[in-house]
Design a protein around this nucleic acid. Structure first.
Length: 559
RNA sequence: AACUCCAUGGUGUAACGGUAGCACAACAGAUUUUGGUUCUGUUUGUCAAGGUUCGAAUCCUUGUGGAGUUGCCA
């Protein structure tokens, strides 16, 4: 008798279990709190899967909350793309979409509350003076000369800040905590600053804006968030998060828990660097299929399910590690192997003529749509005298273990016939321009012949007469270096020069015409490819999502 | 050397004082009308030193290594 494996939970889910069984909470409410100042990337996907995943598992809910407290950086453009990306990933916030800016009124009220309690004050020092007064990692800070202002004076000054009497940076509101605190975040942090800027939602209603620290915990409390999950960089902010909840009349008591953010090798994840790639034209845009953005991944053809599986696999811990990109690719192959329909496509064509096949004859063969889903049946693939095969599938002078086509050698054409190569035709420069072959009529459908003859390889083909032309963009990892971030020098120096190869002359099986954008299919023996949005009626464009595992290529590399 | 956090094969992650397991990667083989898929097998690990204990990856101490933090960004 084997014990049914109990799926192990990460430390966050264990903490939630404890809070539920101890009666601390009756339910679970999480939130995903992006700042609308850029596009979501796969690192965000980890957080999205965590927060929305927990809500699903615990029968709770997950709020989508835009953390929009900095009007100079944020824009509605990003709000829309973020919503779209979350939906695509397969999650739903229902009616629970919020904006931190919706709480500006309440936060302002709470700031006044703090002032009245003698726990906040208006500081006239400029940014430089405040920085100097804060001390550093070794030395305590010193009190601001304005730290002991009277409550009435603070109230008045804060009111005048709000009414626009002062310019940007002239005054700030600070929490009055402890200038000698070992945690720098506790040394009288700025909680309100003056910014005369148009906010994407509140317009010019405000010219003072709350800082992140004065916004996040309170927003959580207002929404009755039970568990506020964030990345490790906010660990040092937790004392402040708790301090505000302790010192304000908040309606609930959320708990901040930090986990390690996602790091992937062979890519960069910071918004700044991704922006730089876009701005400097190293990629075609935020949704370039090489980008680790959700929109890029999607255009690349990675299924949302694979992203979710990947996030499940890497787990949640406090360890700051780097995940291998092959884990992601493996998840992608798993899903696509199961779901992607098979077709034949020749990326680098070489012409092949079957000399004993009648000039005008045409046939159609039945080919399996997806061996993983036999119930889908077969498709018809046209065959004729002149065909294309992959250049890599022929070698004039092959090494011993090369099983594919070579002079005098016989292979199977997938779902068609056995073919033997009789003659190699070259141009004046010695380039191979055509292969002349013969077929065996007794192998129709690719069957083994009655004489029991066997063949070592099966290769794909496309009938020249019926072929559909296409451009195929073969993508590889964006960086040649495993950690482009950490090495010395500019990360751009580590770009993989071969991250994109455009093949203009691909020949496709006709069934490949007319597929919808973003449909991902398997080009047999090559990999998974998806229809790009650049496709037009008469000009198909495919992106290579990920190649098939290729033990032959791997063996070659070793030699 | 202030504070906080982290440390299990090549990578990531389990084991909650009782046989160190899983996935990916790597390697070898079987099957195969995709050199794919599938299946089988193999290699590789508890940062170090002490302590508690019948028993320690797990608890304690010290050390070592790494990360984060000195925005009026989030």
């Amino acid at each position: 008798m084997s014990v049914p494996p109990t799926p192990s939970k990460d430390f966050i889910r264990e903490l939630i279990d404890e809070d539920l069984s101890s009666g601390k909470h009756d339910g679970t409410v999480t939130r995903f709190p992006p700042e609308p100042n850029g596009y979501l990337h796969i690192g965000h996907a980890k957080s999205i899967c965590l927060n929305f995943g927990i809500a699903e598992e615990y029968g709770g809910r997950c709020h989508l909350r835009f953390d929009d407290t900095n009007p100079t950086k944020e824009d509605v453009e990003y709000v829309d793309s973020i919503k779209e990306d979350i939906k695509w990933l397969g999650f739903d916030w229902g009616d629970h979409i919020y904006f931190a800016s919706d709480y500006f009124e309440k936060l302002h009220e709470w700031a006044i509350h703090l002032i009245e309690e003698g726990k906040a004050y208006v500081d006239d020092q400029n940014a430089e003076e405040i920085r100097k007064g804060r001390g550093d990692l070794q030395n305590p800070g010193v009190d601001s000369p304005y730290r002991d202002r009277l409550v009435e004076e603070n109230i008045d000054l804060f009111r005048r800040m709000k009414e626009g009497e002062f310019g940007d940076g002239e005054k700030v509101l600070r929490a009055r905590i402890d200038m000698a605190h070992p945690n720098l975040n506790m040394r009288d942090p700025v909680i309100y600053r003056i910014v005369h800027a148009e906010h994407h939602r509140t317009g010019d209603t405000w010219c003072i804006y709350p800082m992140y620290d004065f916004t996040h915990g309170q927003s959580d409390a207002l929404e009755y968030i039970t568990h506020s999950l964030c990345t490790l960089e906010f660990e040092n902010h937790r004392p402040l998060y708790d301090w505000f909840l302790d010192n304000l009349p908040v309606p609930s008591r959320p708990r901040q828990i930090e986990f390690g953010r996602l790091n992937l090798n062979y890519t960069v994840m910071s918004k700044r660097k991704l922006l730089q790639l876009v701005d400097e034209g190293m990629v075609s845009g935020w949704d370039d299929p090489r980008m680790p953005t959700i929109s890029g991944i999607r255009r690349r053809g990675y299924p949302a399910e694979a992203i979710r599986e990947f996030c499940k696999t890497i787990g949640i811990t406090k360890f700051k590690g780097t995940n291998d990109i092959s884990l992601l690719e493996s998840a992608v192959r798993d899903v696509l192997n199961r779901d992607a329909n098979r077709y034949m496509a020749v990326l680098n064509p070489i012409k092949l003529v079957i000399t004993n096949y009648p000039e005008d004859k045409e046939e159609e063969f039945d080919a399996v749509i997806n061996p993983e889903q036999p119930e889908l049946g077969t498709r018809k693939v046209p065959f004729s005298r002149e065909l294309y095969i992959e250049r890599d599938d022929f070698m004039e002078d092959p090494p011993k273990k090369f099983f594919r086509l070579a002079p005098g050698k016989e292979v199977r054409f997938r779902s068609a016939y056995f073919i033997r190569c009789d003659e190699v035709v070259k141009d004046d420069d010695g380039n191979i321009v055509e292969l002349r072959c013969t077929y065996d009529p007794e192998t129709r459908g690719g069957q083994n012949p009655p004489d029991g003859r066997k063949v070592k390889a099966t290769i794909h083909w496309v009938s020249a007469k019926h072929a559909v032309d296409a451009e195929v963009r073969v993508y590889d990892r964006l960086f040649a270096n495993e950690s482009p971030d950490s090495g010395e020098g500019n990360f751009l120096d580590h770009l993989n020069q071969d991250s994109l190869a455009v093949l203009e002359n691909a020949k496709l099986e006709p069934n490949l015409a007319g597929l919808e954008t973003e449909t991902t299919v398997q080009f047999e023996r090559l990999g998974y490819f998806c229809v790009d949005s650049d496709s037009e009626e008469d000009k198909l464009v495919f992106n290579r999502t990920v190649p098939l595992r290729d033990s032959w290529a791997k063996a070659q590399k070793k030699n």
